[in-house]
């Protein structure tokens, strides 16, 4: 066999049908007759065919493996999870759920209590403020009342009296502001009432000057009106009445 015959079937690539087909045997000498060419050729040819068949089959199998793998990934055609696994995961999930629920419950309780406490604190503060204001009103009534307490109570010094005068002045100012906004609200109510009855008669650029809410629905009107009538008295009757009207509106101001 020649070197060509020896080198066929490169170890790297494996044996290809072409390798077999290209193989050439050297001519036999007259003294030592070699194989019959045709026989060798036939064997080589058959080997090549055989190899080709193997290669084809391999490709086919590879393809088959690939499609099976794809099926395996796409469809849960494989083994379903075992009962035991499902049970274990289910109880683990339930444990987790319980922890989360407990945390939520705890948070609900804590915020709920905090809110209750906050509301209670605000309520107390309001009541407190109301009591202070009432005390101030009483004090004011006493001061402006029958006669000045007289110099004999000089102990309640000038400074103290001055303080109260300043307070009353501020109060008067507050009452006046309050009164003005009530009047303005009344005015805007009247306007809107008028406007509702006859929108065309309303001046186009009407913008009620009040900072209060724009006219509201029916039932509210009567309340506003009442509040205004009460508030109208004070200039004549002294600050006390005005104060009452003022306190009710205070939280909003």
């Amino acid at each position: 066999m020649s070197s060509a015959a020896n080198s066929f079937g490169n170890a790297e690539r494996g044996l290809s049908p072409a390798d077999l087909q290209q193989v050439r045997f050297s001519r036999a000498s007259m003294l030592h007759p070699g194989y019959v060419d045709t026989e060798v050729d036939r064997v080589v040819h058959r080997a090549a065919e055989e190899l080709a068949r193997h290669i084809g089959e391999k490709a086919q199998l590879r393809e088959q493996v690939r499609t099976l793998q794809a099926q395996l990934n796409g469809v849960p055609a494989h083994e379903p999870p075992s009962e035991q696994a499902v049970r274990i995961l289910a109880s683990a999930q339930q444990t987790a759920d319980n922890y989360v629920a407990e945390a939520e419950q705890f948070s609900r309780q804590v915020t709920g209590e905090a809110r209750a406490e906050y509301e209670e604190a605000v309520r107390l503060a309001r009541e407190n403020a109301g009591a202070i204001i009432q005390a101030a009103q009483e004090a004011a009534a006493r001061l402006t009342g029958p006669a000045p307490a007289g110099p004999d109570r000089g102990g309640r010094s000038v400074a103290e009296l001055e303080e109260q005068v300043a307070y009353l002045k501020a109060f008067g100012q507050a009452c006046r502001t309050q009164l003005r906004s009530y009047l303005e609200a009344l005015l805007s109510d009247v306007e809107s009432e008028w406007g509702r009855a006859d929108p065309a008669a309303l001046p186009t650029a009407v913008r009620p000057p009040a900072q209060r809410a724009a006219p509201e629905g029916g039932p509210d009107r009567s309340t506003t009106f009442e509040a205004n009538t009460t508030a109208e008295d004070p200039p004549a009757g002294g600050p006390a009445d005005g104060v009452t009207a003022g306190t009710s509106a205070r939280p909003a101001s």
């Binding site: 849960p76 379903p80 999870p81 696994a85 049970r87 995961l89 987790a96 759920d97």
Partner: peptide
């Protein structure tokens, strides 16, 4: 149902919150 789903397709678990209640 959910345990079965998560075991057969673990990638679906992350679409859900921690608590499944």
């Amino acid at each position: 149902f959910y345990s079965h789903l998560f075991l057969s397709h673990p990638e679906t678990r992350e679409m859900f919150p921690v608590s499944m209640a």
